[in-house]
């Protein structure tokens, strides 16, 4: 399969993730959509790696995974903390800094 197909798939997945971030209001689902976008970029990195015949792309994808794991841990802890004080995981309810 030519790399163009993989890149198009990566584009589509990234866009779907972006739409999810825009339309969903449950913070956990928003987070899942961010993970989806990170995965889509990883697919692009791996494809580029194969295209150029270098492993650098795979190394970068590996680092993206590490950063994503750290981000998930901290992000979910923040969601838990907000849920504990406000009894809600909707991103609309955390509006203390509005206005």
């Amino acid at each position: 399969m030519s790399p163009a197909h993989y890149l198009v798939l990566s584009m589509i997945l990234f866009t779907i993730g972006g739409v999810g971030v825009l339309i969903r209001r449950n913070a956990i689902v928003v987070f899942m959509c961010i993970e989806l976008m990170l995965n889509a970029t990883n697919l692009a990195f791996v494809t580029f790696s194969r295209m150029h015949g270098e492993l650098d792309g795979q190394v970068i994808a590996f680092f993206v995974m590490v950063v994503a794991a750290a981000e998930v841990v901290v992000g979910l802890a923040i969601i838990m903390t907000i849920f504990r004080s406000r009894r809600s995981s909707s991103v609309d309810d955390a509006n203390l800094l509005k206005y």
Partner: peptide
């Protein structure tokens, strides 16, 4: 792609 649409 179907599963990603399912996610959102």
């Amino acid at each position: 792609v179907c599963a990603a649409l399912g996610v959102i």
